[in-house]
Simulated assay, not measured.
Amino acid sequence: MKKLIKTINEIENILTSLEVVLKKEYHNLLNPKISIIDNLESIEEKKILFKKYIILNQDRLFLEKKYHIFAPYQNNNELNNNWNNILKKFYLLKELNFKNKILINKRYHLNQCFLELFSTYKTAITYNFNGNVKI
C-alpha cells in the first residue's frame, strides 16, 4: 500500500512540475521577444514529464489491481486526499493548456497571414536566365 501512496505522490509532483512548465510556456507566448529555443526547451520538458507520468500511471494501475483498491480511494483518507489534489491539478492543467492553445493559434494565424502575403509576393517575382530579378 505504501508503494501506491508513493506512486500517487510522485504523480502529484509531476503534475505540479507540468503546471510550472505550462505557466512558463504561457509567459513565453505572451512575450514575443522570447526566443524559439526557450519554447522548444519547454516542449522537451513537457515530453519528459509526460513520459514519467505515463510510467507512473501504469505502475499505479498495476498496484491498484494488486491491492484491489481503485480510485477515488474512499476507504483510505490519505489516498483519497491525494487523488482529489490530482484531479484539481488535472483541471488546472487543462485550463492552462487551453490558454496556451489560444495564444498559439493567434500567433499561428498572424504568421500564416504573413506567409500568405509573402507567398503572393514571391510568386510575383521571376528571374531571367542571368539570375537577375524581374518584376
Rank of each mutant, 00 (worst) to 15 (best):
K3G: 04
L4M: 05
K6E: 13
T7H: 02
I8A: 01
E12Q: 05
S17D: 09
S17T: 11
L18N: 03
V20A: 15
V20F: 04
V21A: 03
K23I: 03
K24L: 13
L29E: 03
P32V: 00
P32M: 00
K33W: 07
I36P: 01
N39H: 02
N39R: 08
S42V: 10
I43L: 04
E44A: 09
E45D: 15
K46C: 03
K47E: 03
I48L: 12
K52N: 14
K52W: 10
Y53W: 09
I54H: 15
I55E: 10
I55M: 14
L56K: 13
L56A: 06
N57G: 09
D59V: 00
L63V: 02
K66Q: 09
Y67D: 04
F70S: 15
Y73F: 13
Y73N: 07
N75A: 12
N76I: 00
E78M: 01
N80W: 01
N81M: 06
N81Q: 13
N84W: 04
I86L: 09
K89V: 00
Y91W: 14
Y91F: 13
F98W: 15
K99S: 05
K101G: 07
K101D: 08
L103Q: 03
R107N: 10
H109I: 01
N111D: 05
N111K: 13
Q112G: 00
L115D: 06
L115W: 02
L117W: 08
F118S: 14
S119N: 15
T120A: 01
Y121K: 14
A124T: 15
A124D: 07
Y127S: 05
Y127T: 11
F129Y: 14
F129A: 15
F129I: 08
N130H: 07
G131W: 01
N132A: 11
V133P: 03
K134P: 00
